[in-house]
Structure formats: C-alpha cells, structure tokens
Design a binder for these strands. Structure first.
Lengths: 219, 219
DNA sequence: CTTTTATTTTAGATTTGTCTAAAAATAATT
DNA sequence: AATTATTTTTAGACAAATCTAAAATAAAAG
C-alpha cells in the first residue's frame, strides 16, 4: 500500500509525540501539524481504516506495529538525507531540516538503500539523532540532558532537542556541535544558567533554555 | 510563486510537446498525462490565470517566457538527479526515470545548485539529453535520427527517443549506450530494418522502431 | 455549402484534505 | 454532585484536481 505526503506526515508526528506519552491527543497533533483538531479527527479515522494505528473516539491515538514500521522508514529517509546534505553537499547543519522534510517522501526503496550504502551506513544524523537501519533498528543513546550533568564530569555533546534554525544558529555562534567535549563548572540557581568549559577555551555561561536543548554522554 | 506537483507536470508536458509543434492541443496533453481532455481544459484555465502560458479556447496552448523558465528549471532538476543516480549511486540508466520524476519536484534552489556543483556541472544526462544550466541555457545537439544516417558513415550514439524501460532494456541487451560508436552497413526496404556494425563486434540488424529511437552524431 | 466527424469545452459530480461552527463527551472546580 | 471549562467530534462547506456525459466549436467530407 502507498500513502500520501499528508498521511506520512501524520504518522511521523504521532511517532514523535508517542515517544514520551503513551497515547497522543488530538490537540497535541493539531498543534504539531499546524492544523485544526477537527481535521486531525478526520485523518485519524482514515488512518485507522488503513490499519496504521489504534484509535477510539475521545481516547487518543497510538501507532500499531504497521504504523511504527512506516514511521521508522520515514525517519530513516529523513535522517539519511540530512546526512547526505551535510556530508556530501556541504550544507550547514542548520539548513537541512526543511529540505529533508521534502526528500523524506520520495518513495523508491532502492534509492534509500543505495544512498545508505553510498554514505557508508551512517549511524547518526548531523544533529546526533540515530538513523534506523532498513529493519527499523537503531542505536539507543543513553544520553542525558546537559542540565542534569554533574559538575566537573567530562561529557560529549550527542544531540540537540530541536531542529529550529534559531537553536542551531546560537550553537554555531557558540562553537558547540555534535561531539563537542565539555564539562559543567557551576550551576546558578537564580536563573538556572550554567557555566561550561570547552577544551582549550575559556569557560562561559549558557542559559537554562539552551542547556535543556542539549544532550550529552559522559565520557 | 510556488506550484503544485500537478501544475509542474502540466508545464513540463507542454514544454516537451511544444518542441516540434508550435501550439499544443488539449488531446495531445491528455494523452501524455494519462488524463482526460476535460481535466486538461480546467488546468489550462488555471495556468493561464497564473500567467505561465497563453491559451485561447479551441486554439491550443503555448508556454510564455515565465512558463518556459519554469519548465527548464524542472527539466534541469530531472536530468541532474538522473545523472546523480547513475553516476553517484550506481543505478542502471534504465531505472532512473521514475525516481527522477519524483525528485524533480523538490523545491530547494540551493539543493539544485549544490548538487550541480557536486556532480561537476555535467552537460548531459545518462540518456544523452542536455542539462540546462541555472539560467536555462543548454547545449543544442545537432544529432540526427539513426534511420537517416548515411551508409558507412561512422557515428556516435548521443541520445534515445524515449525513457521507457522496454527500450532501455533492449539497448542494454544489444550493448548499445550513449557514446557507442557504430556505422550503418545496409538498409532493407522491406521492413526498413538496418544492419549496423559496432567497433570490434560482428554486425547485426535492428528494427525500424529501434533505429528511430536512436539519435547519433556523425564523427 | 451543408452534413458528418472529431475535438474541445461546459456543467455537474467525486475525492482528498481542509475549515468553521455547533454539539457531545470528558475533565476540572467549586 | 453540580456546574464550568476544556477537549474532541460531528455536520456541513470549500478548494484542488479529477471524472462522465452532454453541448459547442472546428475540421473534414461530400
């Protein structure tokens, strides 16, 4: 069976919202997709008929195994294309998200596999998110929020909490990227800002909001 | 302004039909797009409002300069992606057309320019068709139909008349591709088949239909 | 120069994905 | 437990792209 771009975007949105919460609400979905709750209800009925999810009215929605499989295939394509754009075509990591949103809907299975092989089967995309393999399996990062990193513990940046241009622009300015090594020197309770030190650099403070958008792995 | 995939496909179809004929008829378009004449009429009215073509009812249609510009941008993307698929991802030249039909609608201008640079600004796609540059300019091949090539004149294959899998499969089997050097040894009037000879191979005959689908440049 | 045939257009209906406004169900508060 | 507020669903309408069937125009034939 084949699905429209719109249907794929719904499946992907449900997949991402489902990570934390179990069931996803109509309102959450409407907000994420910049549409209205009424439209979401219509689409959920359609996707239920297509057997991608379980949905009971007023009870929220949850992907079934078919739905998860489709979601992982889309996420795989998105992250492989992002890797391609940055690694092969020299895009900045802050300008690939929108383009990948389009490329992820190209249907050819052969294209995905050839692209994956050409790129050398990468395991993480430029934002540190793991790339599912052709069976939907991916490495689970046990990374922790920078806000929770103990003082003076060396760690490596492994991911960012959002793909927004604003965040990536700020990180570029501060010379923080995936694999940057750093440690927390002080935590200030007044505004929850933290002082960090990157190797061979003077330490500086970053805001609570920024710290919460960074994931690290202690090394 | 931005255009839907459907609108882009209409513009591309008109562009290709317009090459020989001046004005394109509703029926021709319907046949090429596998749709009905009534649907074509509707769309032509819409594209006229969007100022991409000149159209008077019962008089056929013709792209204006804006329409041509858009058509060339789409053709450029199509042929660059075909080149990428064959050259970078190792696809066979007979399996790239359908994938490129999807990729040609990806909108990012930056992506096209980066891809073009990565590929080394190729001038021809894998089927021998010229790739327009970012201004819409392309090399005009003065190639001739194989059926019109004089006997014993050495020539080089420069293009094929269609992208159909059937044709490309046959060419692969006969080891004929872009840049293959050959000459015509005999022409048979009974069925208009012709005998050709490829360097270092025994000569063999090919059908009228196949000869008409091959373009060559005398060398 | 009529009549026949082929092409093209209109009119009205359908599908997909969306919307607004109102009704129904659930959750929160007093 | 009753009332209020929030969330979710229904009902009906709309735009895009398509279709069928019928009407209008143009081209071809006699």
């Amino acid at each position: 069976m084949s699905f429209s771009v719109t249907e794929e975007n719904y499946i992907k949105a449900i997949y991402h919202l489902q990570q934390e919460d179990g069931n996803v609400s109509t309102n959450e979905l409407a907000a994420m997709l910049h549409t209205k709750p009424a439209s979401v209800t219509d689409m959920l009925k359609k996707l239920k008929v297509k057997k991608l999810l379980s949905y009971e009215r007023y009870k929220g929605v949850r992907l079934n195994s078919e739905g998860k499989k489709l979601a992982l295939a889309i996420v795989r394509k998105h992250r492989l294309w992002e890797y391609f754009l940055v690694d092969t075509l020299q895009f900045g990591w802050d300008e690939v998200h929108e383009v990948a949103e389009e490329l992820e809907h190209i249907s050819s299975k052969k294209l995905v596999e050839k692209l994956d092989a050409f790129l050398g089967h990468p395991k993480f995309d430029p934002h540190g998110d793991p790339i599912p393999d052709s069976h939907g399996k991916m490495i689970v990062q046990q990374h922790v929020n920078l806000i929770d990193l103990p003082i003076n513990k060396m760690a490596e940046v492994t991911g960012v909490g959002s793909q927004s241009t604003e965040l990536l622009e700020l990180l570029k300015h501060k010379h923080i990227g995936i694999a940057t090594k750093l440690e927390v020197k002080r935590k200030f309770n007044f505004d929850h800002s933290i002082e960090i030190k990157i190797k061979n650099q003077n330490s500086f403070t970053i805001s609570q909001q920024l710290a919460q958008a960074l994931f690290v792995k202690p090394v």
